[in-house]
Computed example of a mutant assay.
Amino acid sequence: MMKTKSKSDTTDQRNDRLFRLTVKSCALFVLVSMLAAAISMVMGGKEAFQTFGLSFLWNETWDPVQKQFGALVPIYGTLVTSLIAMIIAVPVSFGIAMFITNIAPTWIRSPISIAIELLAGIPSIIYGMWGLFVFVPFMADHVYPWMNDHMGSWPIIGALFQGPPIGLGMLTAGIVLSIMIIPFVSSIMREVFATVPTQLIESAYAVGNTTWEVIWDIVLPYTRSSVLGGIFLGLGRALGETMAVTFVLGNAHQLSLSLLEPGNSISATIANEFTEADSSLYLSSLLALGFILFLVTFVVLALARLMLTRLSRREGV
């Protein structure tokens, strides 16, 4: 009996070590893949960084004929379109999640949840085609002219809404991006809102709180960290989106304060011009843009993680 038990213990220990090694390898695979992608882009963009130096980051010139390249316009377009997308997507996603978890009748919750999941599964190129053939004409005929005529004369911020009514531009791209990331952000918010203990919500209602007070004072504080995590994940997707933005942004290498003017983004620039790179410096500049996008996304998600860690410490977790 003692011999059999010893063999069994040995087998269990071997299996446990094998299991630990397997899951550790899976975790290391993620880190190795990330480092390999970063190193490959750094090495590919080495020529551009050596040629232009740090001025590559704030130079707005992009002239393949003269072999002069700068990343300012794509960086600006990426940040502006992502900011517009988040300004629209976060409150809408919050409203959707709150309606499903706290307000909607039981019979309608499942259909809305399924519709959100279906929207999340639509390929980005479909959003881009819809944006180009349906949304851009609508913006050109109805929204852009009205903004230019009525909002373009506003003090200070009026310059943001002055431009030709062509429909293509950073505002259109930002709205399409927001529609794309709403299903992801709202799904995360819905799941975390559903984890709030029913006793807390019922107790809040029992002492006379309104629905808004319950949401603001009970649900949000309880799920704050997870909500912020979902928001930053949506921001990460918005920063890296390619096809939908390529269709509706206008793909113009020009720096303009107006949201109605065509612009460009890092991902759209790479997608449009990668096959046209006819020189090593041109190709290196595109790879350098890829590294900048990687770095921007990494920094944003790292800051999000740091913020969540601090919130968890304040909450005593």
Rank of each mutant, 00 (worst) to 15 (best):
F161I: 04
L200S: 15
Q162R: 15
P221D: 12
V42L: 15
S203L: 10
L171Y: 11
L259P: 07
E276T: 06
I166G: 10
A71Y: 03
P155S: 03
F49L: 13
L220H: 10
M1S: 13
F133R: 02
L132G: 01
G230M: 00
L235P: 07
N209R: 04
N148K: 03
P91E: 09
A244S: 12
F294E: 07
P137T: 06
A27K: 13
P74H: 07
Q162H: 11
A48T: 09
S187V: 03
T81C: 12
P111D: 06
M2Q: 06
N102K: 12
R190F: 01
A37K: 06
D9P: 03
V248P: 01
M180E: 08
F294C: 11
E273L: 13
R314E: 14
L293N: 13
V134F: 13
V80D: 04
K5A: 09
E273K: 11
G128V: 11
T51F: 05
F184W: 12
F135Y: 03
I84L: 09
E315L: 14
T309D: 14
Q254V: 09
G174Q: 07
G167I: 02
C26M: 11
P183A: 15
I166Y: 11
F247I: 04
G128C: 10
V300W: 06
S203W: 11
D149T: 09
V90E: 02
Q13T: 11
G167S: 00
L220S: 09
R305N: 14
W107N: 08
G167C: 00
W154Q: 12
N264T: 12
E315I: 08
T106M: 09
V299F: 08
L171F: 14
A173W: 01
S258P: 01
W130V: 07
T297E: 01
S312C: 09
P145M: 01
S265D: 04
F19G: 05
L119D: 01
S258V: 05
L35M: 03
W212V: 10
L301A: 14
A271R: 06
E117L: 07
F19R: 14
V23H: 01
I103Q: 03
I218M: 05
V143T: 00
M129E: 06
G53K: 14
G290E: 11
V300K: 12
F161K: 04
A204L: 14
S225F: 10
A38I: 11
S40R: 13
H142C: 07
P91Q: 11
D141I: 06
V23R: 02
V245E: 02
A204N: 13
F298Y: 15
A288R: 04
F138C: 06
M180G: 08
L132A: 09
V42P: 01
I112M: 11
I156D: 10
A194S: 03
S110V: 04
I182P: 01
F232C: 11
